[in-house]
Amino acid sequence: MRFDFKEVITASMVLFAVIDILGSIPIIIGLREKVGHIKSERASLVSAIIMIAFLFVGERILNLIGIDVNSFAVAGSLIIFFLALEMILGISLYRDSEPESASIVPIAFPLVAGAGTLTSILSLRAEFQVQNIILAILLNTIFVYLVLKSSGRIAKLLGTGGVNIIRKVFGVILLAIAVKLFAANINELF
């Protein structure tokens, strides 16, 4: 086991692309409007814990309950699909009676530590040293925290019209990601 800067950078870039916290800004702003304050520290910490725990026991947990990685990815794609529909159509599918929980669901899971991220972590584990993946997860968690913390300022900077345009554009992108994740994994189920 050794630290490898190249592995850390590569794993960080993979996770950055899959987590796509910048693309999730419209969802975060929408949730902030819906539930009020989002606990950035809590959401970041919980997502980091989920990702690191999944690095060590993810595949075993899925196997233990009889779920393969492909089924997990298909389920994640459906969640992403419905989040995208909310963004594109301006409808509300996600409702929660406890506003504080928006920091955990849907931000920490499945937005940050979702099926795509967790599946990617399993793939990275096959290629890279564990400590390098953990460092990549921590670097991404710091970036997620910074975006969550500044989402209010980003919303003010963009204005209502800007947020709505970005929400629709990223909704379509998120929808495409959901379809791709679904298509890539559905064939493996049959």
Rank of each mutant, 00 (worst) to 15 (best):
I142R: 01
K168I: 15
G90A: 04
F16P: 11
K149L: 13
M1W: 10
S123T: 11
D96N: 15
A17E: 05
V172D: 05
L22T: 10
F109C: 03
L118C: 04
V105D: 07
A126K: 08
K180H: 05
I91L: 14
A113Y: 04
G76F: 03
I134M: 14
I107H: 08
R125A: 13
E59W: 01
E98I: 14
I80A: 02
E86T: 04
G171Y: 10
E188T: 01
N63I: 08
I25G: 06
A155K: 11
K39M: 10
K168F: 15
V69G: 01
S40H: 02
G161M: 01
E100G: 13
S151W: 02
I52E: 07
V130I: 15
G161V: 04
A183K: 05
I27D: 09
A84T: 06
I80R: 01
M51L: 14
S40W: 06
R60G: 10
A113C: 08
S151T: 12
Y94P: 00
I50G: 10
L31S: 09
L124P: 10
E127K: 12
E100I: 10
R42G: 08
I52H: 05
V57N: 09
S24G: 13
F16R: 09
I134H: 13
A115Q: 02
E127C: 01
I104C: 07
P110I: 03
L15T: 12
S71W: 03
L83I: 13
F16Y: 15
G171Q: 05
K39V: 08
I65H: 08
L157M: 14
D96A: 13
I177L: 08
V57P: 09
S47K: 06
L31M: 14
L138D: 06
V112H: 04
L31T: 12
I67R: 09
S71R: 11
I67T: 12
L148F: 07
L62K: 06
F16L: 15
A183P: 00
